[in-house]
Simulated scan of single mutants.
Amino acid sequence: MNDPSPRRTYLDVDDRRRQLLDAAVEVMVHDGVAALSLRSVAQRAGVAHRVVSYAFGSKADLVTALLERESGLLTRRLWAEPLAPLPLGDAVAAALHTFVAELRRERVRHERLAELTAMARSSEALAGAARAETEAVRGEIERLVEAWIASRGGVLTAPTATLVAVVHAAAEGLAAWWLATGDDDHVDDVIRVFAAGLAAFERA
Rank of each mutant, 00 (worst) to 15 (best):
A161P: 03
M119G: 08
L96A: 02
L103K: 12
R152G: 04
Y54C: 00
G46E: 05
R203T: 02
E135N: 06
E172T: 11
A165I: 02
V108G: 02
A127D: 15
E81N: 01
A200G: 08
V145I: 14
R77S: 13
A169E: 03
R17D: 10
A204D: 15
A129P: 08
D14V: 06
A195C: 08
R69Y: 01
A200L: 09
R112Q: 07
E133W: 04
D185R: 10
A176W: 09
A24Q: 13
R109D: 03
K59D: 12
P85S: 03
F56Q: 10
G182R: 02
N2V: 06
M28K: 04
V52G: 05
D184E: 15
W148F: 08
A147Y: 10
R17P: 07
D188K: 00
V167M: 00
R131M: 11
L73S: 10
R104G: 13
D12P: 08
V27T: 10
R69V: 06
A161T: 09
K59G: 09
A93Y: 01
A125I: 10
A55W: 00
R8P: 10
A91M: 00
Q19L: 11
H186N: 10
T134N: 03
G173S: 14
P6K: 10
V33M: 04
W79A: 10
M119I: 02
V25E: 15
R18H: 15
I149P: 09
I191S: 12
W177S: 15
L73T: 12
V167R: 00
D185K: 13
D22Y: 05
R143H: 07
R143E: 05
T157G: 14
A161D: 09
D189P: 07
R138K: 05
E124V: 14
V25K: 04
W178C: 00
D184Y: 04
R143D: 00
V52S: 03
A132E: 04
P82K: 09
V164I: 01
S151Y: 03
A45S: 00
Q19I: 00
N2R: 12
V47I: 02
I191Q: 05
L116A: 14
A169W: 05
L113V: 04
R143V: 04
H30C: 03
R105K: 12
R138H: 05
A55M: 01
A196C: 03
A48D: 15
L96G: 01
A132I: 07
R76T: 13
G173H: 09
L78S: 09
S53R: 00
D90T: 12
A129G: 13
A42I: 06
W177D: 15
I149W: 07
D188M: 02
V164R: 00
E124C: 06
